[in-house]
Amino acid sequence: MFKYLISFFTFLLASIFNVKAFAAKAVNTTIPLHHHIVNNSALLSKSLFFGLSALGGGLAIGLGVIGAGVGMGNAVRGALESMGRNPGMEKKLIVWMITGMAIMESLALYALLITFILFYANPFKAIFIK
């Protein structure tokens, strides 16, 4: 157990320092040396902003789909149970089930919309790109 923890933390540290080293390399190659200290915080905030908005977009669609999936599963279960009890109602129930499922599906699409906004039309992008 301890061995795994040690290796995990070494991996984490190595990755963090690697990222720092790569970032420093990128800064060194693109920007002259005397701008280095001034622009480092700007670069950090920029990369933090874009990384976090990508993370937020992924989480939005992922968590949004859970609720819609549970709701649609519930709806299908209810419809199938009542169809089993009363097969005569099958035609009417299927129409209403699909209509309800289309409404539930749009809940997941609201989450997809948030993802698109965060990825492509981020309202705070103008602050960070000048």
Partner: peptide, 13 residues
Amino acid sequence: FSHALRLFANIFA
């Protein structure tokens, strides 16, 4: 709001 967004989001997606 939801009425407009539902149709728009589905077709756009």
